[in-house]
Simulated assay, not measured.
Amino acid sequence: MVEKEGFAALVLRLRAEGISDLDLLTAVEQTPRSLFVPPQFAEQAYSSRSIPIECGAFIEGADLAVRLLANLHVKPGQRVLEIGTGSGFIAAVLGRISERVMSIDRYKMLIGAAQRRLDSLALRNVVLRQADGSNGLTGEGTFDRILATAAFPSMPRFLAEQLVSGGVLLAPLMTGEETCTMVRLTKTGSRFDREDLFEVPYLPLVPKVASFL
């Protein structure tokens, strides 16, 4: 019941924002958010507030998660890289609308918990890996879409190089001591078009720590 009511309320809020992509909303509906939050927060799984999870991380509010996915414009047949697995919710939704998802996180514990959730949903095209995301993911070729949910101090050019032509990168940039803006880069040949989208609550990326966690 919580799932149905929560999802219905979320859809109304998203429609008010102009988000009505049926494939995306169907993928969200098929991915029960209460699986991805600690049990004591199940009632708030579809709220717009961030919810704390293990390792001092958090799962972004439902509205923000879907808004990011809507701005990524993922299409069937595409390969997607996610930097910052967290709870695994976004990776799970991406798995329903793309060909293949690689998702990395620096915390072994988060990767393990996310893997169990994906297994319970029988999502086989999502590969999780514990890795330091400050260099993207080398050795896996290029991606059609890249989504980062850890904030970079400046535009991560090395990530843009892991995109195919026509690819899209969504990454949060630190724009002040406490402020962080989601930026979308679209790659055309060797050129990039940049759009600043909206403020987001993400934490700064901490490089080189995956090997210790």
Rank of each mutant, 00 (worst) to 15 (best):
K4R: 15
G6K: 02
R15T: 01
L25D: 03
E29W: 14
P38T: 12
P39A: 15
E43K: 14
Q44K: 15
S47Y: 10
S47A: 13
S48G: 13
R49H: 14
I51G: 02
P52Q: 11
A57V: 01
A62T: 00
R67Y: 02
L69K: 00
H73S: 11
K75V: 08
P76R: 10
Q78T: 09
L81K: 04
E82Y: 10
S87E: 07
F89R: 03
F89W: 15
V93D: 06
G95W: 09
E99V: 03
D105F: 01
Y107K: 03
K108G: 08
I111K: 00
A113I: 10
V126I: 11
R129M: 15
Q130S: 09
N135F: 08
T138N: 10
I146M: 06
T149G: 01
T149K: 05
T149F: 05
S154H: 14
S154L: 09
E161G: 08
L163A: 04
V164Q: 11
A171D: 02
L173Q: 06
T175W: 00
G176I: 00
E178K: 12
V183G: 00
L185R: 03
R191W: 11
R191L: 14
D193F: 11
R194F: 08
E199M: 06
V206D: 02
V206G: 04
V206K: 15
K208G: 15
V209E: 09
